[in-house]
Amino acid sequence: MKYVLMFVETERFARELQAMGELERQAAYAAVGRWFADNADKITRHTHLAPVHTATTMRLDQPEPMVTDGPYLEGKEVVSGFAEVEVADLDEALRLARTWPACPIVEIRPAS
């Protein structure tokens, strides 16, 4: 089955990343790189999003499309990236998610 893992950052995680020294941050990025390499056979695609302050939202449910600055949902948690994976079932997707070394929340959804 195909699933999309949505990586969700929290404010606290962003602060911790900010507070890291250069070496520490490099190690954190290296862990993420290793995760993608280790699971390359299951990951069909992945995207890292630019920070949330770059987001623009368009609402089409009114007479004129409305463009606003910022994400569609203001909150302390923001989606920072996606990975599309091809695995046998939800348990295998959960196993992958469990080893994710970065941001603290991962939403897993089946995709077609």
């Binding site: 699933y3 046998a88 079932d89 348990d91 997707a93």
Partner: peptide
């Protein structure tokens, strides 16, 4: 059905 929850007894560390 839709999320692919398997019909299985988990093994090992799970």
């Amino acid at each position: 059905g839709e999320a692919g929850i398997p019909y299985r007894v988990p093994a090992g560390e799970e």
